[in-house]
């Protein structure tokens, strides 16, 4: 069937010329199967990518009853939260989310950076430790939360809280505590830090690892020490990737729900101290879904919270991913 057949073509001037054309076999089942599959797969791929838009649209639709009566600025900055009176000020939740996430990042990022440097630049144990860290990263959120209740909360309550209160707390109010339970920002930040550490470390380590070996040799050949090379060459070369990793880690931590909810105390207030209880956005959604249909506009408020979460996460993710892709189009994961 695939025999090359001479065919007479006539060009515009009218002179006939002979060319050899391989006819496309449009009758065969193989051809049609391939064409149908192509269409089907293309549509499902496109639909899956559209999911982002669909989710955002659905949340926006559900949040609209509130968004249409209150300006976004008022919703974000107002501190009054009285669902029964119809007052929905999100600032306590946004502030709580920001505080918890920032504390977690402040604890996790330095440790993750130094660990990643050690794995990429100093040790032969990379092949052993990285899978181990990945394995530990698969522990579910609820187990981290349980560990937080069992270990971190008592630690904060009995040791860190009092110690900080009697020293730094005497000068800086942020380090004083009048929360005797231990459930609060620091406990949540600590648990969250442990949870994002494997992720941030893993991504940064990949970025360090992709720095060409010749570049290290160039620095070492000038008589630089390993640390000088790591600091001035490897770190500098990977800086955009490291920033992207931190941003991705931030957005992961920002949306983490159950572990945080279990140790953060869940009190609607703008936290004024490291030890105050707080109420992050994901906890707000998770704790109140049960009663949201019984109070007017409450469901809309919770969906607004979900929409806020989505917007933050999308912005950070898209930005960071674009940086990673530009850095290394082949291996960006």
């Amino acid at each position: 069937m695939n025999i090359v057949q001479p065919r007479i073509l006539t060009d515009r001037i009218g002179t006939a010329r002979t060319t050899f054309v391989i006819p496309r076999n449009r009758q065969g089942w193989r051809y049609w199967k391939d064409a149908i599959a192509s269409q089907g797969m293309g549509i499902s791929t496109f639909a899956a990518c559209l999911l982002i838009v669909v989710i955002a649209g659905a949340l926006l639709d559900r949040a609209w009853p509130i968004l249409s009566v209150e300006s976004p600025k008022a919703l974000v900055t107002s501190e009054t939260w009285h669902p029964i009176k119809g007052q929905f000020g999100f600032w306590p939740f946004i502030a709580s989310s920001l505080y918890v996430t920032l504390i977690a990042m402040a604890l996790a990022v330095p440790a993750a950076l130094f660990s990643a440097m050690y794995l990429a630049e100093y040790t032969r144990l990379r092949g052993l430790i990285k899978p181990l860290v990945d394995l530990l990263a698969s522990i579910p959120s609820v187990v981290y939360g349980l560990w937080g209740v069992l270990f971190v909360v008592p630690l904060v309550r009995d040791h860190i809280g009092p110690a900080s209160n009697d020293t730094l707390g005497q000068i800086i109010p942020f380090f004083a505590t009048n929360n005797p339970t231990g459930y609060g920002l620091l406990a949540a930040g600590f648990v969250l830090a442990i949870m994002v550490f494997p992720f941030v470390m893993s991504v940064t380590e990949e970025v360090f690892h992709s720095v060409p070996q010749e570049m290290r040799e160039a620095s070492l050949a000038l008589g630089a020490t390993h640390w000088e090379t790591t600091k001035a060459v490897v770190l500098r070369k990977s800086l955009p990737g490291v920033i992207a990793a931190v941003v991705l880690g931030f957005s992961r931590a920002f949306g983490e729900t159950l572990a945080v909810l279990m140790v953060v105390g869940n009190v609607v207030q703008v936290p004024g101290s490291l030890f105050d209880a707080a109420y992050p956005l994901p906890a707000l959604i998770a704790n109140n879904y049960g009663e949201m249909m019984s109070i007017p506009l409450y469901d809309s408020a919770l969906m607004t919270a979900a929409l806020m979460l989505l917007i933050v996460v999308l912005t950070f993710n898209i930005g960071a991913r674009l940086v990673l892709v530009r850095l290394n189009p082949e291996t960006a994961a």
Partner: peptide, 25 residues
Amino acid sequence: RTRIGLLAQKPCPLPMSIYDNIAYG
């Protein structure tokens, strides 16, 4: 390595300015 320098096969500028490449060492 300070006393015995290396010029590699492929040029490998460090990720910094022309000036800092020379000033690094």
